[in-house]
Design a protein around this nucleic acid. Structure first.
Lengths: 189, 189
DNA sequence: TGCATTTGATAACAAATGTTATCGTTCAAC
DNA sequence: GTTGAACGATAACATTTGTTATCAAATGCA
């Protein structure tokens, strides 16, 4: 697990040791809520094992915004950064092993680490990459049909298709589960 | 114009002076291409007056990804940062007054300024805000009907509706211009 | 093991959206 | 001013996608 983290924040081992005790381990069953819609995000989670989903309620419908797998780092980032109510619920959808850090500690750690040029670069890089991901994702809504979006995931993140219930994938693609079922059926032929 | 910039990068005036000569002014007519799809972005543009559109070609169709107005800062950011071919063309859609900085100089400036904690914070903040914007945009494709997306723009960025040809708005919303015309018609009644 | 819940497929029908074509208007270039 | 291109509205029709309901299979749990 900590290999993932060391990769995200490449600092020397001894410095790293100083932060280890900020990380708390959680072993959780499936369908455990990590943060409720409307609450303020106080923790950032690192996924060692399992799968986490961000979703929100729209007129009684459960709509999926994003998935995170092993190695992922998840929080309701706008809530975490700006201390505003979270627009999403964050929930495990598999039995999962997570590590979390409280916001207060995370802020302190970042404040120290950001002074180190390599870490700073890495941090900014991660931020840019996440921005690029979101850009690609919304461009795909302009550019691709739902069928094509499904094929894109199948190619780029096959894990998601294999592990995640289809109706969650459907709303993530912006379609109904009935329609996704039709798409799969059509692709078989 | 430079007020916008000073606001984005709040440094003392004398320091600011040192960078002024990196900014080159352009006065351009409408439909001037600033960067072609496939080229590598070498400049970042700041908009003093006018309007700029990022778009790409998909099977012969012209699809709009994003608009920028006065005060905006535009480049093909993934291309600018990673020196990869731009997925989009950047083009004025009104007679515009722009300022640009070459990537080499921008990198040098940022390298210096990023050491200053306030600037660094501001920079990271701008990055986060842009990320949040893209998140909201793609969530709106999951959550809202095209009609609702149109109403959202009308409310949040009415300037876009007023100034930008409707068929550009349409593809930005992920629909055809015919459908957008229908939506507007329906809203009249 | 057995039962309830979740998940996924499918059908029939309704609604939304795209396609193509036509027409009138606006607008900029000459 | 005249003209051609760009823009926007509209209609008719085709296609895609959503809705609702039902059923079968898979899954988790007592």
């Amino acid at each position: 697990m900590f290999d993932h983290l060391k990769n995200k924040f490449p600092i020397e081992d001894q410095k790293w040791e100083r932060y280890l005790n900020c990380f708390k381990k959680l072993e959780l069953p499936s369908k455990t809520v990590l943060l409720n819609e409307g609450e303020i995000s106080e923790r950032i989670f690192f996924i060692e094992k399992g799968c986490v989903r961000c979703w929100f309620n729209k007129d009684g419908k459960d709509l999926t915004m994003q998935f995170f797998l092993e190695g992922g780092m998840v929080a309701s980032i706008e809530s975490f950064r700006k201390k505003i109510p979270s627009p999403v619920t964050i929930e495990t959808i598999e039995p999962s092993i997570l590590w979390y850090v409280d916001k207060k500690e995370m802020d302190r750690i970042l404040k120290e680490l950001i002074e180190i040029p390599e870490i700073r670069e890495k941090f900014i890089d991660i931020l840019f990459e996440r921005t690029f991901d979101y850009m690609k994702h919304f461009v795909s809504f302009i550019k691709d049909s739902p069928e094509q979006r499904y094929l894109n995931i199948l190619k780029e993140k096959p894990q998601l298709i294999q592990r995640i219930p289809q109706h969650y994938i459907a709303s993530y693609l912006g379609i109904t589960s009935v329609h996704l079922s039709r798409i799969k059926n059509k692709l078989l032929k």
